[in-house]
């Protein structure tokens, strides 16, 4: 009897080194593969994702919210949305999950080099942008980096520690808004598109990178087009249901493309050639 080597679908065990609670719905898991040699060779790029296994709940695709640090630890930020993510939220430091990947087309980081960057995110949508923002601050200090971030309420604002860290850079502007205010909130209230008037950048010399719920994506695309951004300079990452992660099972079909393999990162000009729910009015 032969033992199959089903590398493709076989996860590798990874230990939860630590857990950070970003808000009541989102937790960031700091992970490291138990197989040290594999962990050293593991090099996910911003925009890529893994299939995360939680015992008895199968798998779900999760974007990296960091690149590996000097100890090879990396972050996955997960919003409690269904059974698997609820089970994950019940897990603690020291517990073990399964991961396979990295999969998907990453952000075109070379294209971002030296460019002014405008990030627009809503809720958990900031997670896949975190490693892009961090990387943009490491290389090329003289560019402008702007983050417009929308949350439902002030207590829903996630990644606060990251935002505070980014704000220490003088070339970085972080503007936050909430859908509905709470006591003590001094900041903006309203849609993330309302923040556009409160910052300045040159649409001809800036790349916009967007991630958030479909409604937000649609509104932000429209606003950026109005401002004169070219479709090639508007980049987003799409969320879909996935099973295989490698372009076979077709759960993530988006018109003629498969988000897992052709994406999840797309430019607006690529999306416009497709029938995409996020762009439908």
């Amino acid at each position: 009897m032969e033992i199959l080597q089903p590398d493709l679908y076989l996860p590798k065990s990874a230990e939860i080194i630590d857990v950070t609670e970003e808000n009541s719905q989102i937790k960031t898991y700091i992970l490291s593969f138990i197989d040290k040699e594999f962990n050293d060779s593991f090099a996910p790029q911003p925009g890529q994702f893994v299939l995360l296994s939680v015992p008895h709940y199968g798998e779900a695709p999760i974007s990296f919210s960091s690149t590996p640090d000097e100890n090879g630890r990396f972050h996955l930020s997960v919003r409690k949305a269904g059974k698997l993510t609820s089970a994950l939220h019940a897990m603690e430091k020291g517990d073990i999950v399964g991961l396979r990947g990295p999969y998907g087309r990453p952000f075109p980081m070379e294209q971002f080099e030296g460019k002014n960057l405008l990030f627009v995110a809503g809720g958990i949508g900031l997670a896949p942008l975190c490693p892009v923002i961090n990387s943009s601050l490491q290389n090329g200090a003289d560019r402008c980096v702007t983050l417009l971030y929308g949350s439902r309420t002030p207590s829903d604002i996630a990644f606060k520690a990251d935002i505070d860290k980014w704000r220490q850079h003088e070339n970085v502007t972080c503007l936050l808004t909430v859908d509905s205010s709470e006591e003590g909130w001094q900041g903006e209230v309203g849609l993330v598109t309302g923040l556009f008037g409160k910052c300045s950048y040159d649409p001809d010399d800036t790349l916009a990178i967007i991630c958030g719920p479909p409604m937000m994506i649609r509104a932000v695309f429209a606003e950026l087009e109005r401002q004169g951004f070219s479709d090639d300079n508007i980049i987003t990452t799409m969320e879909r249901h996935m099973k295989c992660g490698v372009g076979i099972c077709r759960h993530c079909h988006m018109d003629e493309k498969l988000v897992c393999k052709d994406g999840p990162v797309f430019t607006l000009s690529e999306l416009k050639k497709l029938d995409v729910m996020e762009l439908r009015s």
Binding site: L4, L10, S13
Partner: peptide
């Protein structure tokens, strides 16, 4: 798969 919370979560390839 075999899971012992906090100890191990292992995956055993199918036999063909």
């Amino acid at each position: 798969y075999r899971n012992q919370p906090g100890v191990s979560y292992e995956f055993e390839p199918a036999k063909s």
